[in-house]
Design a binder for these strands. Sequence first.
DNA 1: CAAAATCATATTGCGCGCAATCTAATTTTA
DNA 2: TAAAATTAGATTGCGCGCAATATGATTTTG
Lengths: 163, 163
Amino acid sequence: MSDKRDEAETDGIPAGTLALDQQLCFAVYSAAHALNRTYKPLLDPYGLTYPQYIALMTLWEKDGRTVKALGAKLGLDSGTLSPLLKRLEAAGYIHRARDKSDERQVLITLTDKGRAMKKDAVAIRMEIGKATGCSLEALQALTIDLQALAGRLEADQAHDDAA
Amino acid sequence: MSDKRDEAETDGIPAGTLALDQQLCFAVYSAAHALNRTYKPLLDPYGLTYPQYIALMTLWEKDGRTVKALGAKLGLDSGTLSPLLKRLEAAGYIHRARDKSDERQVLITLTDKGRAMKKDAVAIRMEIGKATGCSLEALQALTIDLQALAGRLEADQAHDDAA
DNA sequence: CAAAATCATATTGCGCGCAATCTAATTTTA
DNA sequence: TAAAATTAGATTGCGCGCAATATGATTTTG
């Protein structure tokens, strides 16, 4: 009667039907939490959370961004970034200042402490790499696949917004 | 002087040094947010959040779990699950009841509404599949890689706990 | 130039995620 | 069996993430 792979269920929906995408979304969900939990003990000594650390990373790449530019890079809005950046400032990692030429904008710049943290991040990077237990090639391939997935999902959302 | 791929920076840390793992952790972070945002408009009509939907999925797979068993499956503790399950109960998707043979445990069972939702999930599944724009094979490969990554990260954490 | 529209950021409210703590039930052990 | 230890959940507090709203600053329009 029913296929071997999709065994019948009492509700009439084969057991395998929902499996794949559920597995994907659950796998992304689980991997994000697992990474978060791996970073936590490494960042706790610095009083940093994982999202705060990610924000610092983008500033190491290019300092002096506006809140909006940071938000575009991180995919976060001011509702998330404003309080996060206030906490990063209170912790001494960044400085916030209104742009004199356009008072609507707030420029985020690294402090000495924020720049110094970049050197400590090298050790954190090695710990994470060790925890993943993956080769650099495998991590790179996975990264590319994830970027492609996120890119297509975002494009799809942009498409829906236009409709 | 410096290698072509790792151009020197003013702080002495080559630009490429931090890039790879940053890209991976950021890619996982971004993909999780993108998936969440893709699910949101599909789940809003049902008054469900993405984590609530994931909890329902695990109950479709096996109904009548305890809170602890659900937490083990989802990687969540009671601090997250207790209020989430109370909201799922208030929305009419599940029923919570103390186990008569062990009053410490709370058994979570699907209501008729909760079981009926499984049929609607088929349409949601197809929307997500379309939004990813990936072949089933590609999604499956990505899922396996992510499961492997999460598995190794969790094993690493368990190892650290023992130390 | 003044009113309207737009833009950048901040604030509020709600739900998730986690650590820490609390309560009640069960099991261990002395 | 009584005391101690363990277990399952619930609660509290804090930070993230997002929608909705508010506030000023700038730009556009009439």
